[in-house]
Each structure stands twice: as structure tokens, then as C-alpha cells.
Design a protein around this nucleic acid. Sequence first.
DNA 1: GATCATAATGTTAGTGACTAACATCTTAGT
DNA 2: ACTAAGATGTTAGTCACTAACATTATGATC
Lengths: 190, 190
Amino acid sequence: MTDGAETPDWRSAKKAATRARIRAAALELFRRDGYDRTTVERIAAAAGVTHTTFFRYFPTKEDVALSDNYDPLIAGLLSARPSTESVAEKVCGALLEGLTSIYLEFRDELLEQMRLVQSVPVLRARVWEVLVDTERTLLEVLDDDSLEARAVVSGIVAASTTIILAWAEAGGRDQLPELLASGFAALRRF
Amino acid sequence: MTDGAETPDWRSAKKAATRARIRAAALELFRRDGYDRTTVERIAAAAGVTHTTFFRYFPTKEDVALSDNYDPLIAGLLSARPSTESVAEKVCGALLEGLTSIYLEFRDELLEQMRLVQSVPVLRARVWEVLVDTERTLLEVLDDDSLEARAVVSGIVAASTTIILAWAEAGGRDQLPELLASGFAALRRF
DNA sequence: GATCATAATGTTAGTGACTAACATCTTAGT
DNA sequence: ACTAAGATGTTAGTCACTAACATTATGATC
């Protein structure tokens, strides 16, 4: 009998491939024709599936534009922070480290994604909703559900996002890590 | 000839009345049947108009649930802050004052609206988008478009929103101004 | 190797938000 | 009355998204 892990490796691999194909097709079309002028139907067709399959992989059209998975990285870095630091110090430190390494490795991809988000209102709105998940993740790692922690974490995450979007809006000409560092410093100065 | 002010008083008054009627009908239906189970068609019918007219007053269904106008109040308070304060102090001070007076005057309305936002994902997402406008307004009043100011303002506004939503989620049992004060204090302690 | 179960996909038909083009009606100024 | 303009209605469409059911592919079992 197939044990606990119910999905054989190759099966989930195939699903991952399909997911990647849909995502790639979507991003390509978004870039070529713009988000609004790209219908789900066309994305699905370009990926060789139908719209139903599309929605089985991505619950909304927005999700395919926002899909990334940086949370685990940030969470890992956060948990490695020394316990002598305050909540705010830990979160700022982890975000700075994580985003810096993402920046170094995927700068172009990040820039394109953020420019898309920046230019499409519905995506801009959705980004903040996605961040709520990030915040929840961070709070779980911190093991602190106090209102103060929630406020601090959401404030820092929001500030980071504002900075990233501003960086993208300016064409990515600046060094993102430096911008983040100066933003955090400004928050700290109060 | 009809001069500069092209819309006579009574005309805009009538429009305002229609707008208010649509809004009231919508909130009533949202409360009674839930946001998702309330169609725009039904709202329009309840307000004695058609869906086209609805969309002439509110660009989206979300907007009718989020329509408020607290920004001018906050902006006014912000501009009255002494210039000796830092950006963060000014913003925190203005938000605390403004939200406190809103709380004192419209507590029940605010609570109901935030509970609705809290319980409907699409509204939760949209709220953050609306806040971008608030942030822009505040930055204009501050006459400071630096990245640091943007980061600080968005951080503080996000923290405030998180606190308000948490307050509503907990049933509005706490004193909102106290929660805000302790949240701001936590941010300040860093 | 035929059978059978299951996961993935497709088909079809719907709902509902939102838009655009055009018609109608109301009211203000002449 | 006549006309221009602003507000509303009608109609027909697009598109995101859902649900019910049919189909196919593949793996396990006999």
C-alpha cells in the first residue's frame, strides 16, 4: 500500500510542472499585453489547459501574479535571531537579511513583479492582503500574539513593502538593501 | 449664464441624498444577509435605482462598504501639530487625536464597519489600498516626500489599522484610544 | 492483462460584478 | 413651448469565478 505520503513523487512533480507552466505563461502574457488585457482563458490556453484547471492551481487571477514564497526564508532567519533582541529588532533584522539575499539572487524577477503590482490597482490591493499572512507567520515564529507585537510587526512589514514598491517605481536604480536600512533607521529614530 | 459653480445647490443635494440612500440600503443588506450574498442588483433595487446608477455613485461594490471620510479630519489635525515634533510624532499624535474623536462620536458605526471588513477577505484587501490614499494625503500635509517619511507614515498607518481591526475582532470591548496609545508606544520603544 | 479506483483534466452552464452605447426623462434657462 | 444638460434607465455584452458532471490517464490488484 502507498504509505502516509499519499502523493507519489512523480505525481506532485508533474503538478508542480503544470503550475510552473501556467505561471510562466501568465507572467509572459502580463508583460506582453498587460494584466487587464490578459484573460484567464488566454493564460490557460497558452499553458495548454482550460480555465478550470487554471483555477485549481491558482484560486484567483491575482494569485498567479503574486505567487512567490519568500515567507519560509524570512521565518527561518527570524527564528535564528538572538533572544536578546527586541521584537522590532528581530523583525527588522530578519527582513533586512532575507530581502537582501532575495535581492542579490532574484533582483530582476523581483523588480518586474513589483512593477506589475505597482501598476495594477487590484494587485496593489491584494499585496497587502498577502502580507497579512506574512505577518501571521512572523508572529507565530516570535511566539508573541500581543497587540503590541502585532502592531509593531505590521508596521515594519508595511514600511518594508512601501520601500520595495518605491524602489520598483523608481526603476530599481537604487540598492534595495540600503533603502531598507535607511527606512528602518527612520522608524527607529521615531 | 450659469457661472463657475456649475451644479446648483439642490442638484448636488439630491445627488448626495441618492448616494446616502444607496449606502444605507447596502449596509442594511450587508448586515442582514452578509456581503457576499448581497448582489449589487438588490442593493440598487432597495435604494430605488438600477445597477448602472449604483456604479455611477460607487465605482465598485467594495467602495460602498468602505466609504467614509475621515481623511480630512486627520489631515487637519496633522497640520496643526507643532513643527518641533518629528514626522512620526506628528503622525501618531494626529492619528490618536482623530481616531479618538471618531471613536467617541461614531463608535458603533466604526465597530460594525470594521467587523464587516474583518470578516470579508475582499474588503480586508481593499482597506489597505484605501490606506494608500490616506498615506498620500498625510505626506502632502507633511510636505515631505522622502523615502524615510513614506516608510514611517505607512508603518504607523498600518499599525493603527492592525490595532483597529484587532479591536473590532475582539468585539470592541476595549477602549480603542488606549489600544492605539499602547501600540504607538511599542513602536516607539522599538 | 483485464479490472477497478483515484487523481487530474475537460465540458457545460451558470452567477454576478462591471462596462458601454444608446434611449428617456427631468429640470433650468431662454 | 423649446432647448440644452444632467441624471437615470435599458440592453447587451465581457470576464472572473463556481459547480456538476463527464472523461481520461495512470497505478494497484487480482
